[in-house]
Simulated assay, not measured.
Amino acid sequence: MEAFRIDVPQSRLDDLHERLRRTRWPAELESVGWSYGVPVSAVRELASYWLDGYSWREHEERLNRLPQFVTEIDGQRVHFAHVRSARSDALPLLLTHGWPSSFADFSRIAADLSRDFHLVIPSIPGFGFSGPTRVAGWSVARVAAAWVSLMASLGYSRYGVQGGDFGSLISPAVARLDPAHVVGVHVNALTTFATDDMAGLTPEEVERARGVERWQQISGYAAIQSTRPQTLAYGLADSPVGQLAWNLDCFESWGRDVGGVARDDVLTNVAIYWFTDTAGSSGRLYRESAAAWERPSAPGTTPTGIAVFPGDSTVRRYAETAHNVVHWSEYATGGHYAALQAPAELAEDLRKFFGGLA
């Protein structure tokens, strides 16, 4: 295990800026909005800001305020931030990001959460500063096993787990692998699938359940990353604007939550993917993890808390078929990227849930 500090060479920044200046922009249809994908105007505006307004060095310095390390687990480099609380009795909390996010999402709430928790914030293998994966097989289950090893290596015998998006799959998988040490699971942005005709659901729950159908209509990105991630990688590895557009589509919820994530947070995530050349390897998680979307044969036994934010397709009745739900919260503000869009609400929900398990 070695200390790590983010330090992107200036030559990489110069190359990025040159590529942004030389972007070849595609043609597009008029008056179709987001219905065919990200509008050129949206990408042009953000790319212009990336070139002339956004400061990577400022955010690099901000991220480096988090103590960071790299280690090797199961033959793979693993990067993580480790923020110890001043409280000697603080509960260790393992935070897992999703796609197209990174460990940087949690940098916005780390100082707040560290008042009550020791924080371990890893980069999923294949993402960001963990670098590209080199062998096949890095699925949700394998990532979860790596997280169990990571927490053991840090000397934590009792800890909680939290995650959104892919983190909402990885975190419960950690608990299933390590039930003797995981005291609780907290998730947001959890997708649940209807198992019946939805009779008895409230109108709000029906609307959430139908969110899965709406997602399937625009989920081409997931289909590609689940089947041909290497083919996609060539364009994303060669064009920063290609990487920006691909990730922005999800950050803006395919046109339904434009501006919901601050543009500096979007660009910090996109820049991490670009500088670490992890566009292709992060996409492979979709191909490796097809089985992770299947409902387990029996609910998990670890106490589970679920926070639901606007846009989430999460229905309690269906969540309870896979999880031991003991805590449920619904919020009127925020969104899929809760650590960025509703940091105070997420932090408070974590305190309420894990405080009740003490």
Rank of each mutant, 00 (worst) to 15 (best):
G242K: 00
W56F: 09
A104P: 03
G280Y: 00
E252F: 11
G137V: 11
S226P: 05
L13F: 07
R77V: 12
Q68K: 10
F193A: 00
D249Q: 13
G155D: 12
E345M: 11
P203R: 13
S282Q: 01
T23D: 11
S48L: 02
R22M: 11
S313I: 05
A339S: 15
L350E: 03
G305Q: 01
P26M: 08
C250Y: 11
A47W: 03
R295H: 12
R351F: 09
H181A: 13
H17G: 10
W99E: 01
S329M: 10
W246D: 04
S88A: 15
A180F: 03
V326C: 06
T133A: 07
R287P: 08
I124S: 03
A262C: 10
R351E: 08
A3S: 15
Y221S: 06
A279N: 13
H336G: 03
S107K: 03
T202L: 08
L340D: 05
L169R: 01
S289V: 10
D165M: 08
V38R: 06
E320I: 00
S289D: 11
P296N: 08
R263N: 07
P26S: 06
L63N: 02
D178M: 04
E348A: 14
G75I: 06
D312I: 09
I272M: 08
T71K: 10
E45G: 07
T202G: 10
A180R: 15
A332G: 15
S88H: 09
L113V: 07
G260N: 12
D15S: 14
A319P: 02
S282M: 10
L13Q: 12
E330I: 04
Y318S: 05
A262Y: 09
G300V: 00
D197A: 02
S11M: 02
G164P: 07
G211W: 07
A344S: 13
A291S: 15
G259K: 11
Y318K: 07
Y318R: 08
A47D: 03
D178W: 01
R256K: 13
S31K: 15
A194Y: 08
R65C: 09
R84G: 06
G255R: 01
R295V: 10
D7A: 15
V8S: 12
T278V: 03
G259Q: 12
G356Q: 14
R22C: 05
S31Q: 14
P9A: 13
A145H: 14
V206R: 11
L244D: 01
V261Y: 00
V8N: 07
W34Y: 15
T278I: 02
W147S: 06
V161E: 04
L13H: 13
G98C: 08
E58N: 10
I109K: 03
A222K: 04
F69G: 04
L190W: 05
F106A: 09
S48Y: 02
G242Y: 04
P26H: 10
D112G: 00
P132K: 13
E320W: 03
Q225G: 01
F353C: 01
D105N: 15
V38H: 01
